[in-house]
Design a protein around this nucleic acid. Structure first.
Length: 639
RNA sequence: GCCGGCGUAGCUCAGUGGUAGAGCAACGCACUCGUAAUGCGUAGGUCAGGGGUUCAAGUCCCCUCGCCGGCUCCA
C-alpha cells in the first residue's frame, strides 16, 4: 500500500501502482471529471500515471494556471493530429500552450486559409469524439532519433539532437498520432470539449529571422462550450476598446497614409497629453528633477562618440546640413551628456536628475507599427540621473517608487522585467555583472517580483522594464530604468570629488510613461475612452433644453471656464435626447441639463456618463465638487 | 523586413465582368422639445495608386502603398 496525503491534509491508502485518475474517482466522481492533471510531490504528472510510493497529491483542474496549460497543450496536440490527417506531408515544429490558448507551428508548402482552419476544426472535433487516450512512453535517444527521422519530422530530430545527453525522451500517442513531448496531458482527447482556431500567422523557426518561416495556427480551448463563447464574446468587447478605433472616434488623434507611424494629435488628444505633461512636471519637480530640452538633429560625430552609429544605425534617420551629416536623435542621452558637460559639477550636487520630454525618431520595421503603441516618432519622458556609485541603489529605488506612484494614479496593474547583457553590447562582463546586480539589489529591496529576459538589455547597459497591458492583453513596455556605465566614459563625464580630483559619475536613463504616445494608447484602452475627469478632453457639456435656455447655458459655461473646468455648450437645435446620446458616445463625464427649472432655481441637472441622471444641484455646489474631483485626479467620479 | 489577410462616401457596410448603393454623420428647412437617435430634403466617389486582360473591370491578373493578425525587433 502507498500513503497519499491530499492537499487538505487527509491521508488515504491505495494499492501500490494505482493510477492517479482512479484515486481521483475514489475521492469523488466530480473530481475525476474535472481534474486535468495531478501534482505528485509538487511535480505535474499525467492522471494516467501510477502512484508507486507515498506522496503528497494535488489534483489540478481548469481553474488553475497549470490545468489550463495542460489542457491547451493537449489541444495543440490534437490540432497537430488533425492537420496531419488533412495534410500528411506537413512537418511539425512546436506547439506550446500560451496565455489564453495555444499554437502549433507547421511547415507546409501550401498556406492555410480561413476555410482550411474550419476544416481543421471539424477534424479536431472528430478526434475529440473518437476519444483517444493520451499514452506516454519513453525511449532511448537513438531510437527516438530513428523514429522521427523515419517519420520525416526534421524539426523534431533537431529538437532531440539538442536535448542534453542524459535527458529522458518521452513521446505521447493518441490514436494514430505520435509526438515528441515532455507532457503531461489530459487523459484522453474526449476531455477537450470546446475548441476554436483563431488565426494563422507566419513565425520563424525558433524565433530566428534567418530561419525558415513556418505557419503558426493560434487557437483556444475550454472544458465547456459556454466558457468558450464567453471568451470569444470578451474578445469582441475588447476590440471595442481598441485605441486605434476609439482615438479617431473621440477625435484624439489620426493616422495618415502620408506619414505611416507618425501620429497626428488633434486638440482633444493634446488636452490629454498636456494633462499628462503637467502631472509629470509637478511630480518631477517635487522629486528634485531639473528639466532640459535638447535638439532633434545632432552631428554624426556625436553619434559615433556615443556608439549609436555602430550599434543603432539601422534604426536611425539621417540628414545633411551644410554638407555635414546629421542624425535625427533616436534617443535623448547624447544630447543630455552634452548638457551635463556644459557645467563643472561637484560631488555636492549629486545626484543630478535631469529630465527631458524628448521627441525621438526611430526607423521601425513597417510590419511592427501599431497605432500609438508602436510608432516611428515618440516623446519619451526621459531623465538622466548622474550619481556617485554609493547613490545607485537609492536612486533606482526612487525611480521604482515613482513609477509605482504614477501607475497607481491611473489604476494600472503592471509587471516588471529585468533584461541582461545582449550579444551586441559595449563594455566588459564585469561591468555588466556589477550593473545587473545593482538593479537586482534594488528590486529585491523593494520586494518587486520580476521576470528575467536574458540578453535583452540595451547595448550600453542592463535594464528594468515596466510593462502595461492593452485591451487584448498584449503587453507594452512603458517605464524603464537603464544603468549605463558606458556613456559617462565615452563622454568623459566627471564630477569634482571631496578630494578635489575628477571622478566618473554613474548614470541611469529612465522613463515613467515610456512614450507619451504609447501611454495615451494604453490609457485610452484601459478606460475604454472614458477618461477620468481630470484627463477628459471635455469635462462637462451643458445641454440647454431649448433656445431660451442658451444664455443661462453660456453663463454657466463661462463660470466653469473661469474655474479652469473644460466645458462646452451644445446649443444645436436638437432634442435633449439627441444631445445626451452624443455626449454619451463622446464619453464626456458630466452632462449638465438646463431648462426652465434650472434657470429659475440657479441649479444644474447633473447626468454622469455611467451613473446616469443624478438630479438637480445648486450650480456652485456642483462646481466645487467637480473641482475637487479634478484636483484629486480621482479615477471614480463622485459629483 | 518576413508570412497571411484586407482596402467601395467622414464612419459601418452592400455590390455574381454590363448605368456605383444603403444606414449613420454632414449641410438646408420645419419642429422649441426634460435624460441614449424628430421629420423632410440636399450634397457627397479617381471603388487605395499604377499597369494589364476584356467590346466592357469595383469585380479577373501583376506591381506599389497603406492597414489588420502574427514573427523578428522595441518606448
Amino acid at each position: 500500500m502507498v500513503e497519499v496525503v491530499l492537499k487538505n491534509g487527509t491521508i488515504r491508502e491505495y494499492k501500490e501502482g494505482t493510477a492517479l485518475l482512479d484515486i481521483a474517482k475514489d475521492i469523488s466522481p466530480r473530481l475525476a471529471k474535472e481534474a486535468i492533471a495531478a501534482k505528485v510531490n509538487n511535480e505535474l504528472t499525467d492522471l494516467t500515471s501510477n502512484l508507486n510510493e507515498n506522496a503528497e497529491v494535488e489534483f489540478v483542474d481548469f481553474n488553475t494556471e497549470e490545468g489550463q496549460e495542460v489542457f491547451r497543450h493537449s489541444t495543440a496536440h490534437v490540432m497537430a493530429q488533425a492537420v496531419k490527417r488533412l495534410y500528411p506531408e506537413v512537418k511539425l515544429a512546436i506547439g506550446p500552450s500560451i496565455e489564453n490558448g495555444f499554437y502549433y507551428d507547421f511547415d507546409l508548402s501550401q498556406s492555410f486559409s480561413l476555410q482550411d482552419l474550419e476544416k481543421i476544426e471539424e477534424e479536431i472535433n472528430k478526434i475529440i469524439k473518437e476519444d483517444y487516450s493520451f499514452d506516454k512512453y519513453v525511449l532511448p535517444r537513438d531510437e527516438a532519433l530513428d523514429k522521427f527521422k523515419n517519420m520525416g519530422e526534421d524539426y523534431k530530430v533537431e529538437l532531440i539532437n539538442e536535448m542534453p545527453l542524459g535527458e529522458i525522451i518521452s513521446c505521447y500517442k493518441q490514436g494514430e498520432f505520435e509526438d515528441l513531448c515532455a507532457g503531461p496531458h489530459v487523459p484522453s482527447t474526449g476531455r477537450l470539449k470546446a475548441v476554436k482556431l483563431l488565426s494563422v500567422a507566419g513565425a520563424y523557426w525558433r524565433g530566428n529571422e534567418h530561419n525558415k518561416m513556418l505557419q503558426r495556427i493560434y487557437g483556444t480551448s475550454f472544458p465547456k462550450k459556454t466558457h468558450l463563447e464567453e471568451y470569444l464574446h470578451r474578445l469582441e468587447e475588447a476590440k471595442r476598446r481598441d485605441h486605434r478605433k476609439l482615438g479617431p472616434e473621440l477625435n484624439l488623434f489620426s493616422m495618415h497614409e502620408e506619414a505611416p507611424g507618425f501620429p497626428f494629435f488633434h486638440h482633444k488628444g493634446i488636452v490629454v497629453w498636456n494633462n499628462l505633461e503637467n502631472f509629470w512636471r509637478e511630480e518631477h519637480l517635487k522629486k528634485g528633477y531639473q528639466e532640459i530640452r535638447t535638439p532633434i538633429a545632432l552631428s554624426r560625430q556625436l553619434w559615433e562618440k556615443s556608439g549609436h552609429w555602430y550599434h543603432y544605425k539601422e534604426n536611425m534617420y539621417f540628414t545633411n546640413i551644410d554638407d555635414n551629416e546629421y542624425a535625427i536623435k533616436p534617443m535623448n542621452c547624447p544630447g543630455g551628456m552634452l548638457t551635463y558637460k556644459s557645467n563643472l559639477h561637484s560631488y555636492r550636487e549629486l545626484p543630478i536628475r535631469m529630465g527631458e520630454l524628448g521627441l525621438v525618431h526611430r526607423h521601425e520595421l513597417s510590419g511592427v507599427l501599431h497605432g500609438l503603441m508602436r510608432v516611428r516618432c515618440f516623446t519619451q519622458d526621459d531623465a538622466h540621473l548622474y550619481m556617485l556609485p554609493s547613490q545607485v541603489k537609492d536612486e533606482i529605488i526612487g525611480v521604482i517608487n515613482l513609477v509605482d506612484y504614477f501607475y497607481k494614479t491611473f489604476g494600472f496593474d503592471y509587471h516588471v522585467e529585468l533584461s541582461t547583457k545582449p550579444e551586441k553590447a559595449m563594455g566588459s562582463d564585469e561591468i555588466w555583472e556589477m550593473a545587473t546586480n545593482a538593479l537586482i539589489d534594488a528590486l529585491n529591496t523593494n520586494g518587486v517580483n520580476y521576470k528575467v529576459n536574458e540578453g535583452d538589455g540595451a547595448f550600453y547597459g542592463p535594464k528594468i522594464d515596466f510593462h502595461l497591458r492593452d485591451c487584448l492583453d498584449r503587453t507594452w513596455q512603458c517605464g524603464t530604468i537603464q544603468l549605463d556605465f558606458q556613456m559617462p566614459q565615452k563622454f568623459d563625464l566627471t564630477y569634482i570629488g571631496e578630494d578635489g580630483e575628477k571622478h566618473r559619475p554613474v548614470m541611469v536613463h529612465r522613463t515613467i510613461f515610456g512614450s507619451i504616445e504609447r501611454f495615451i494608447g494604453i490609457l485610452t484602452e484601459h478606460f475604454a475612452g472614458a477618461f477620468p475627469t481630470w484627463l477628459a478632453p471635455v469635462q462637462a457639456t451643458i445641454l440647454p433644453i431649448t433656445d431660451r435656455h442658451q444664455s443661462y447655458a453660456r453663463e454657466l459655461s463661462e463660470k466653469l471656464f473661469d474655474m479652469g473646468i473644460r466645458a462646452e455648450v451644445d446649443d444645436r437645435n436638437e432634442k435633449i435626447n439627441y444631445k445626451i446620446r452624443e455626449a454619451q458616445t463622446q464619453k464626456i463625464p458630466y452632462m449638465l441639463v438646463v431648462g426652465d427649472k434650472e434657470v429659475e432655481d440657479a441649479t444644474v441637472s447633473v447626468r454622469h456618463r455611467s451613473r446616469g441622471d443624478l438630479g438637480a444641484r445648486p450650480v456652485n455646489e456642483f462646481i466645487e465638487c467637480l473641482k475637487e474631483e479634478i484636483n484629486k485626479k480621482a479615477i471614480e467620479s463622485s459629483c
